[in-house]
Amino acid sequence: MIDQINELITQNLGPQGGLMIVGLLGVLLILITLPILLQKQEDPLEKLKKQQRAQVSEDGQAAKLRAGSNKKSKLEKYSTFLEPQDAEEFSAVKLKLLQAGYRSKNAVQYYHFSQFALGIVGLIIGGILVILKTNQAGDEGLTTQAMAMWGVGPGAAGYMFPKYWVTRRVDTRKEAIEQGFPDSLDMMLVCVEAGQSLDQSIIRVARELQAGFPDLAWEYELVAHEMKAGKAKEQVLRDMSERCGVQDITSFVTVLIQSQQFGTSIADALRVYASEMRDKRVMRAEEKANKLPTKMTLATMMLTVPPLLVILIGPSIYNISQNLGGV
């Protein structure tokens, strides 16, 4: 019986068929057992607190809040697996997601879950590809290197894709903030010189930038709300510089903090810094324009030189070949 099954597997899947079936069964068992192993037991003290809150709350709004808290507990059931246990690593991942524009409270969990899920999906796709390639190879079968490449490659690509996506989002968001920052300084300077306070000018600038530069407008809006809530202005500005991750905004925050500490005019500081940011934007555009010829050199050589050689040398080569053929 076992010999017949082994022969059937070898005929359909090739010499490595048994190994592939064992690997797929292992992945299936891992997928089945992971939810059981990662299920987080509810703390009895937390359960007692929930019961007490349920008894106290009687109106519909409290019931709605309880539903939200239950949803939160379901989402955080696998937090020990989906979140880094090291506080420094957790802060670094959260800051990177904030710089990418993902501001949800559970963004870190979603990020690691996407890595895990895409990695598992990639391994399944890799197993299917290995089976197909083995059938195409016939009796020779696949080499160990080819099997590892086709089997593990899609899984590694799926695992690394969220990290690549977040990195690209961070770069795109930083570029958008850098483009809109000089204009925001000009508008803020106009508002301050018109007699508005710094808080009012930030709110006005956030409203005006909403259509053209939504990322920068959101940062200004968050700064205004935090100042209204009573948070220290210096800490609010430093948090903004960390969320943006742009050197221009970090320097701007330093200028505002120093202006506030030394009692100098904010309008004068904004005027000088806005002028510097305009010059820096022009210099950045000139830098990109100067890099363009260098980047076009390789493409120009590849698209121009071969046709030119064919036009110049082609007739001579053709005549030489005809003469040699006639001889």
Score class of each variant (00 low, 15 high):
residue 43 D to H: 07
residue 44 P to I: 07
residue 47 K to I: 07
residue 47 K to M: 07
residue 50 K to H: 12
residue 51 Q to M: 10
residue 52 Q to E: 05
residue 54 A to K: 08
residue 54 A to M: 11
residue 57 S to Y: 06
residue 59 D to E: 14
residue 59 D to A: 11
residue 59 D to W: 08
residue 59 D to T: 13
residue 59 D to K: 13
residue 61 Q to K: 14
residue 61 Q to E: 14
residue 62 A to L: 13
residue 63 A to H: 15
residue 64 K to D: 09
residue 66 R to C: 07
residue 68 G to K: 08
residue 68 G to D: 10
residue 69 S to C: 12
residue 70 N to D: 15
residue 70 N to L: 15
residue 71 K to G: 14
residue 71 K to H: 13
residue 73 S to Q: 11
residue 73 S to D: 15
residue 74 K to E: 13
residue 76 E to V: 02
residue 77 K to V: 02
residue 77 K to C: 07
residue 77 K to P: 00
residue 78 Y to H: 13
residue 79 S to P: 00
residue 80 T to F: 05
residue 80 T to K: 04
residue 82 L to F: 12
residue 82 L to D: 09
residue 84 P to D: 11
residue 84 P to N: 09
residue 85 Q to D: 04
residue 85 Q to R: 06
residue 85 Q to L: 02
residue 85 Q to T: 07
residue 86 D to H: 02
residue 87 A to N: 04
residue 89 E to N: 04
residue 89 E to T: 10
residue 90 F to D: 11
residue 91 S to Y: 13
residue 92 A to M: 14
residue 92 A to C: 10
residue 95 L to R: 13
residue 95 L to K: 14
residue 98 L to R: 10
residue 98 L to V: 05
residue 98 L to Q: 14
residue 99 Q to L: 08
residue 99 Q to A: 11
residue 101 G to T: 09
residue 102 Y to N: 03
residue 103 R to P: 01
residue 105 K to F: 15
residue 108 V to K: 10
residue 109 Q to C: 03
residue 109 Q to R: 13
residue 112 H to S: 05
residue 113 F to P: 00
residue 113 F to N: 06
residue 114 S to Y: 08
residue 114 S to K: 11
residue 114 S to G: 04
residue 115 Q to F: 06
residue 117 A to R: 11
residue 117 A to W: 05
residue 118 L to W: 13
residue 118 L to A: 13
residue 118 L to C: 15
residue 119 G to C: 15
residue 120 I to G: 11
residue 121 V to H: 03
residue 121 V to K: 04
residue 122 G to Y: 12
residue 123 L to V: 11
residue 123 L to M: 14
residue 123 L to E: 05
residue 125 I to C: 08
residue 126 G to D: 15
residue 126 G to H: 15
residue 126 G to Y: 15
residue 126 G to E: 14
residue 127 G to F: 15
residue 128 I to P: 12
residue 129 L to D: 06
residue 131 I to Y: 09
residue 131 I to E: 11
residue 131 I to P: 08
residue 133 K to M: 06
residue 134 T to Q: 09
residue 136 Q to M: 03
residue 137 A to L: 01
residue 138 G to D: 02
residue 140 E to L: 00
residue 141 G to I: 00
residue 142 L to R: 01
residue 142 L to C: 00
residue 143 T to E: 00
residue 146 A to H: 01
residue 146 A to M: 06
residue 147 M to Q: 09
residue 148 A to N: 15
residue 148 A to Y: 12
residue 149 M to D: 01
residue 149 M to K: 03
residue 150 W to K: 03
residue 150 W to D: 12
residue 151 G to L: 06
residue 153 G to F: 03
residue 155 G to H: 10
residue 155 G to Y: 10
residue 156 A to Y: 09
residue 158 G to I: 10
residue 160 M to C: 11
residue 161 F to E: 09
residue 163 K to T: 09
residue 163 K to H: 04
residue 164 Y to C: 05
residue 168 R to F: 00
residue 169 R to S: 03
residue 169 R to T: 01
residue 171 D to G: 00
residue 172 T to S: 04
residue 174 K to G: 12
residue 175 E to F: 06
residue 175 E to W: 04
residue 177 I to W: 15
residue 178 E to Y: 01
residue 178 E to V: 01
residue 179 Q to M: 10
